[in-house]
Amino acid sequence: MFKPLIRISVLSCLVSLNAYAKPVVTINGISLTQQDYEQYVEIRSQKTKTNVTPDKRTIIEEMIDRELLRQDALNNKLDQDPKFIEQLKQLRDNLLMSFALQTYLANNKITDATVRNFYNQRITQIKMPKQYKARHILVETETEAKAIIAEIEKGKSFGKLAKAKSSDLGSAKQNGNLGWVTKQKLVPSFGNAMEKLAKGEYTKTPVKSRFGWHIIKVEGIKFQQAPAFNLVKEQIRNGLQSQQMQQYSFQLRAKAKIIK
């Protein structure tokens, strides 16, 4: 009772194979099959890095042009040209080296657990910088800065003074607000003065930088958050793979007989 089903299955496979081998175009007696077509589409999409494929007719026209070039090169015996032979050797060697690396990495896969473990170990060792929610007022002279500090001490609003008198127009529009910043991203004199302030404090003496004279106020302090695992896991994996490739190279050197 199963024989008819087997015959149908075999026939279906033969029909599929015949369709796969059926020429989509023949150029000077050379047939390009459906298999050739599909392989070309795949390679083309990898090179163009897009999932958008032109219509079949456009692809076939490209294949015709490529095949005509290939045939013309063979007719002119360019495959025997020493330059071609040398470049072909280089391409072969590069492809072999690439396959050797791919095979090594495939046989020594870095698991998600390894990546996670690396993240957990390293993240606890990293000292994350503090972030400061800061405002500032920038003026040209120390005298101006001292006068503004005197006004703040009398109870005037830091934000209103920044909006009215700061020469840093970008932050002045925001009442001197710089948002959350780290010391490392600021000029040294500004960063050093800022990190000495507690929450709610401002500099009682003007701070000089190449931009002018600053009065700085800190309104909040927090530790910068470590990057989430999902945001850095592929970077970690790539870094571990780089280490693997170095290790692979060291192993090959250790086994090799090298004479310099």
Rank of each mutant, 00 (worst) to 15 (best):
A113Q: 15
R116P: 02
F118M: 07
Y119Q: 03
N120D: 15
Q121L: 14
R122C: 04
I123G: 04
Q125F: 10
Q125K: 14
I126L: 12
I126E: 06
K127F: 13
A134D: 08
H136R: 07
H136A: 09
E140Y: 08
T141D: 10
A147G: 08
I148H: 04
A150F: 13
A150W: 07
E151C: 08
E153V: 11
G155M: 11
S157A: 07
F158S: 05
F158L: 10
G159K: 02
G159L: 03
A162E: 01
A162I: 00
K165W: 04
S166P: 02
D168V: 07
S171Q: 13
S171I: 13
K173L: 11
Q174D: 12
G176E: 01
G176F: 00
V181E: 03
T182K: 11
T182S: 12
T182L: 03
P188C: 04
P188G: 03
P188A: 04
S189T: 13
F190E: 11
N192Q: 08
M194R: 04
K196P: 02
K199V: 14
K199R: 04
E201Y: 07
V207T: 09
K208S: 09
F211M: 14
I215F: 02
K217Y: 01
I221G: 03
I221D: 01
F223S: 10
Q224N: 05
Q225P: 05
P227W: 00
A228H: 13
V232S: 03
K233N: 10
K233Y: 05
E234L: 11
R237P: 06
R237N: 13
R237E: 07
R237A: 12
